[in-house]
Computed example of a mutant assay.
Amino acid sequence: MRRWLILAVGIVAQATTSSFLYGMPFLIPELQSSTGASLAEAGVLVSAPLLGLLTALIAWGAAADRFGERVVLTVGLAATGVLLLVSLTLPGPVALGGGLLVAGAAGASVNAASGRVVLGWFGPGERGLAMGLRQTSQPLGVGLAAATLPGLAERFGYVAALALPATLCLLAAALVVAVVKDPPRPPRPAVSASPYRAATGRTLTRLHVASALLVAPQFMAGTFAVTFLVSQRSWSAVDAGRLVAVVSVAGAVGRILAGVWSDRVGNRLGPMRIIALLATATMLAWAAGDLLDSSLAVAALVAALVVTVTDNGLGFTATAELAGPFWAGRALGVQNTGQNAVAMAAAPLFGGLITAFGYPWALAATAVFPLAGAFLTPVAGERRLSNGVDPAEVEVRP
Score class of each variant (00 low, 15 high):
residue 77 L to E: 10
residue 69 E to C: 15
residue 81 G to N: 07
residue 97 G to S: 08
residue 74 T to H: 02
residue 55 T to P: 00
residue 90 L to Y: 05
residue 107 G to V: 02
residue 99 G to C: 13
residue 81 G to F: 08
residue 73 L to I: 00
residue 83 L to F: 10
residue 78 A to C: 06
residue 115 G to N: 14
residue 130 A to Y: 03
residue 114 S to M: 14
residue 83 L to H: 06
residue 83 L to Y: 10
residue 106 A to E: 04
residue 54 L to A: 06
residue 69 E to P: 03
residue 77 L to I: 11
residue 106 A to S: 03
residue 71 V to A: 15
residue 88 L to R: 09
residue 96 L to T: 09
residue 105 A to H: 06
residue 81 G to Y: 08
residue 56 A to C: 08
residue 70 R to D: 04
residue 82 V to K: 10
residue 129 L to Y: 07
residue 82 V to R: 13
residue 88 L to G: 13
residue 110 V to K: 04
residue 74 T to I: 04
residue 56 A to Y: 00
residue 114 S to F: 11
residue 91 P to W: 02
residue 95 A to Y: 01
residue 125 G to S: 15
residue 119 L to V: 15
residue 68 G to L: 00
residue 78 A to T: 14
residue 105 A to C: 09
residue 67 F to S: 14
residue 94 V to D: 09
residue 87 S to C: 09
residue 111 N to G: 09
residue 66 R to A: 11
residue 67 F to Y: 15
residue 100 L to F: 15
residue 126 E to K: 05
residue 113 A to R: 10
residue 66 R to G: 01
residue 55 T to E: 03
residue 124 P to D: 08
residue 82 V to T: 12
residue 96 L to N: 07
residue 123 G to W: 13
residue 100 L to P: 10
residue 94 V to C: 08
residue 90 L to F: 03
residue 85 L to A: 15
residue 102 V to W: 06
residue 70 R to P: 02
residue 83 L to E: 08
residue 127 R to G: 08
residue 86 V to N: 12
residue 59 A to K: 00
residue 131 M to C: 05
residue 123 G to Q: 11
residue 58 I to P: 11
residue 124 P to Y: 08
residue 95 A to P: 09
residue 56 A to T: 13
residue 117 V to S: 13
residue 90 L to E: 09
residue 79 A to W: 00
residue 64 A to P: 04
residue 127 R to K: 11
residue 94 V to N: 06
residue 81 G to M: 09
residue 91 P to D: 05
residue 70 R to T: 03
residue 68 G to T: 00
residue 80 T to I: 00
residue 116 R to E: 12
residue 111 N to D: 14
residue 123 G to R: 09
residue 129 L to R: 15
residue 107 G to K: 00
residue 80 T to W: 06
